[in-house]
Design a protein around this nucleic acid. Structure first.
Lengths: 267, 267
DNA sequence: CGACTGATTGAGTTGTATCAAGGACAGTGG
DNA sequence: CCACTGTCCTTGATACAACTCAATCAGTCG
């Protein structure tokens, strides 16, 4: 049987099966996984076994239970991390106490002491959303690796640059757009990252996403997000449970994100 | 006399001198400038004369009159630019037609085809705010340079990473904050980039900044920005004219940005 | 089977965009 | 040198989206 045995399908009665794999990720990070990640990570693709081996030796594996904080904003930043397993949330708490979520990272992504030039402190708080595993490499070691392998440096640069562009795009829409637009955008982005598409077009988001998290992603409040989600649930656009979210009508969400709100709003 | 002969000082009568240097930047980019930029640009610092020379040969100089568009969002992106002289505005137009300003670039900064991995199109529109001059290098050539000089690659990476961090920070405050907060933040950031501090603590922003531009930076509307600026003018926090802006009370602005709005609001 | 955390829904308030009209300024032409 | 004209800024009135506060309603977990 494939691991994903449940679908976000609801029975006619309204009762619905919980479409989550019953897998609680193991809170440990076996060697094979580690090596696999290193090989798979876009950064190191194309490197010789040997080179990967040497890089690997400079990295430390750490495992984190769900909910655990890897580091907090303001902590001294000396190391870089690569997600090996799980989901890591990068968030910030504004002066007002509102939590904003900068990103949700999936295996292969780099984070940590990125802005090595400026502040030697973390600007974000990193939290494991599920049981996760990270590879940690000291900043200086990483620099050495990059110096040894300019090709890797280029790839890392490409990645970071791409993220910068995306971030800039985000900034653009952030305030101009309405809350529904922002929520739709956040969901679609998550879909691209952690979504698992099923035959019927449904996309399962494999992240435990609280309303507060979503609110953080969409720069809104849990209440507002809840309203939007409720409406969309009624309209069959999305469905969600305690720790899963399903996108039933991607096209409609894309329309919402673009602001083409189809308002057959007869209700 | 020093070039900056005028101050944002106003005579008692309310008449005020225009504190702008009467310098219209030359719309040409002489060789010395070019070489100077290349040497000064953080990226290439520490390189041998020889290496700079070789890099220089791969670059093309272009000059732009004020208001000219370097490229538009959606145009094919094949080259990178470094600002040599002037000010370049990176903006985006949202679906609704609102203009958002991602950044205002000053000499030494890199822009253009950054996200080489993803979209091969420009995500932003680049406009010269004043007469400007740019160095242009083909994307592939740049990659070669980086491969030849891993140290440069690292510096570029640092820069881009720093900008990413900053962008993420922006995203955080963008929607949570109020318009005055966002305007204050935008002004302070500009101050750090293009501000010229005077003895009395006043900071002159050497950019022609329309209300629309500021609105774009602060993710707001020209009207709202105007209201905020008017209020601050009355309170002696800022002063501005057609093509200049002065920050008279930096501390107060920082308080505004932080949300500690001192509301002696007796008026 | 109760207690708790998180989600939902409701009602009231406010900031800000929007629409619209007037005012200041710079550049142009007489 | 002065009026003219376009552009930008300013200011007012109005509407609405979204936040806030607060109460209820699940869904989990012990």
């Amino acid at each position: 049987m494939s691991p994903q045995d449940a679908a976000p399908v609801r029975t006619e009665s309204g009762r619905r099966t919980i479409p989550l794999r019953e897998v609680t990720l193991p809170h440990r990070c076996p060697w094979p996984v580690r090596r696999h990640v290193l090989t798979r990570a876009p950064y190191f693709r194309g490197l010789s076994e040997d080179a990967v081996e040497r890089i690997d030796r400079r990295m430390r594996t750490t495992t984190w239970p769900a909910g655990r904080t890897l580091y907090r904003a303001g902590d001294p930043a000396t190391a870089l991390y690569v997600v090996a397993e799980g989901r890591v949330k990068l968030s910030q708490v504004t002066a007002g106490g509102t939590e904003t979520v900068a990103d949700i990272l999936v295996p292969g992504e780099l984070f940590g002491a990125m802005g090595t030039l400026g502040e030697p402190y973390h600007s974000h708080t990193a939290t494991a959303l599920v049981g996760s595993c990270t590879l940690r490499i000291d900043q200086d070691d990483f620099r050495e690796v990059l110096l040894e392998h300019p090709g890797v440096a280029l790839r890392v640069l490409d990645d970071v640059a791409a993220r910068l562009v995306r971030a800039h795009s985000d900034i653009g829409g952030q305030t101009t757009d309405t809350v529904p637009q922002r929520v739709a955008t956040a969901l679609l982005r998550l879909a691209d990252k952690v979504g698992e598409e099923r035959d019927d077009g449904t996309v399962m988001l494999e992240v435990p996403l609280s309303r507060a998290d979503l609110a953080g992603l969409a720069r809104s409040t849990p209440e507002s997000v809840s309203r939007v989600m409720s409406r969309w649930k009624k309209e069959g656009v999305v469905d969600s449970g305690r720790r899963w979210t399903a996108l039933l009508d991607r096209r409609r969400l894309e329309a919402e994100a673009a602001g083409d709100t189809p308002r057959p709003d007869g209700v």
